[in-house]
Amino acid sequence: MRIHLRTRHYSIRTEQAYVDWARRFILYHGKRHPQDIGAVEVEAFLSNLAVDRHVAASTQN
């Protein structure tokens, strides 16, 4: 993921944020590989952020 972001010239801070959110997503789903996770799991993660963790909508986007 880092290599992909760097080849697209994302800033280091953006890279760190994206990698951290990907890590949180994977941990939330019991360390399952992202390829094995579908739309239902993505919705569950975003709902958890909004309802339980009170994360702003702009952060979720």
Rank of each mutant, 00 (worst) to 15 (best):
H9V: 03
F25M: 03
V42M: 01
E43K: 13
S47Y: 10
T14L: 00
A22T: 06
M1G: 05
H54L: 11
E41H: 08
F25Y: 15
A56H: 11
R8L: 05
F45P: 00
H29F: 10
S58V: 04
V40D: 14
E41W: 01
H33M: 05
M1Q: 03
V55Y: 15
V42G: 01
G38R: 04
H54V: 06
D36G: 12
G30H: 08
Y10M: 03
H9Q: 08
A39R: 09
E41I: 02
R6C: 07
E43A: 13
D52T: 06
I26D: 01
L46Y: 08
R8Q: 08
R13L: 08
E15V: 00
L27P: 02
I26E: 01
L5R: 00
Q35C: 13
Q60W: 06
N48S: 15
A22F: 06
I37P: 11
N61F: 07
R8D: 01
H9P: 08
A44I: 03
V19Q: 06
V51I: 15
Q16E: 12
V40S: 13
F25I: 02
L49E: 10
T14D: 01
V42C: 03
A56D: 13
I12W: 07
A17N: 06
H4M: 04
D20P: 03
G38L: 11
L5N: 04
E43I: 09
I12C: 06
W21E: 04
R6M: 09
T7R: 13
V55H: 14
G38D: 14
R24A: 11
L27I: 09
A50N: 09
A39K: 09
A50C: 10
D20Q: 10
R13W: 04
A50K: 14
S47N: 15
Y10S: 05
D36H: 12
Y18M: 10
E43T: 11
H33S: 10
H9W: 05
A56T: 10
M1V: 01
A17D: 04
D36L: 09
R32S: 11
M1T: 02
R53Y: 04
D52G: 11
S58T: 06
H29P: 04
R53W: 04
A50G: 11
E15N: 01
M1S: 07
P34Q: 00
S58G: 05
T14Y: 01
T7V: 07
A57T: 12
A50E: 14
H29C: 09
L46C: 15
D36W: 03
R6G: 07
I3N: 07
V51R: 12
E43F: 08
R53S: 10
K31A: 09
D52W: 05
